[in-house]
Every structure is written in C-alpha cells, then in structure tokens.
C-alpha cells in the first residue's frame, strides 16, 4: 500500500466587493488541479466580501507559483485582493 502523503495546507484570502461567482471560480481552479478544499470561512461585511479558504495542495499537479498566477488572474478579472500562503506562517505567528 502506498504511503499516504502528508497534507500541505495553504491559506487563501479574498477581499473585495461581493459579486456572483467568486467561490465558484476559485473552486473550479482548485478542482481542476487536484487541490482539496478543507475549510472555508466567509463573511459579507456591508458590501465587502471577506473570505479565507484552507486548501491542501499536496496532490496538486502544478506548482505554487502557477497556482498563484491563476489566482492573480481571477483577482484581476473580478477586482479582488487574493493572497495565498502556506499555513505554517500563520501557525508560527499566532500560536506558541
């Protein structure tokens, strides 16, 4: 039996004006490249859309750099701010 690979969680954040299809577009990119979405938190504050998504890229078929390039394109098309970072940075900074 093949050894199960450890997960590699990245956190995606989105901020911007709420429009139809933000999550759908992001999820489509994730699914296309075998990235498993493990958690989503989303809020609308006034008309502002704020979201964090945790995604496991361990089985992804493209590099982080390429994933980011695709996210940047969505960010540009939909006028959003999108960031994408390995979760270890948040753990290091916010957990002792």
């Amino acid at each position: 039996m093949a050894k199960k690979k450890k997960s590699q969680i990245c956190i995606l954040t989105v901020t911007g004006i709420d429009t139809v299809g933000i999550i759908a577009k992001l999820a489509a990119v994730m699914a296309k490249h075998s990235i498993n979405i493990v958690d989503v938190n989303q809020k609308i504050m006034e008309d502002y859309f704020v979201m964090t998504m945790a995604a496991d890229i361990v089985n992804a078929d493209i590099s982080m750099e390429k994933i980011r390039a695709k996210l940047d394109r969505i960010a540009k098309d939909m006028s959003l701010n999108i960031t994408f970072q390995n979760e270890n940075i948040f753990k290091a900074m916010h957990r002792i």
Binding site: T13, N81, F90, M93, H94, R95
Partner: peptide, 17 residues
Amino acid sequence: MAITVEEVFETVKMTLD
C-alpha cells in the same frame, strides 16, 4: 486550534499594508 479569520488577516495586512 484552527487559525481564525482575524489572525489570518492580521498577517496578510502586515505584508500588504
């Protein structure tokens, strides 16, 4: 304990702003 939305944005804000 999972990282909260506030914590995530605190970090993101540091680099962006």
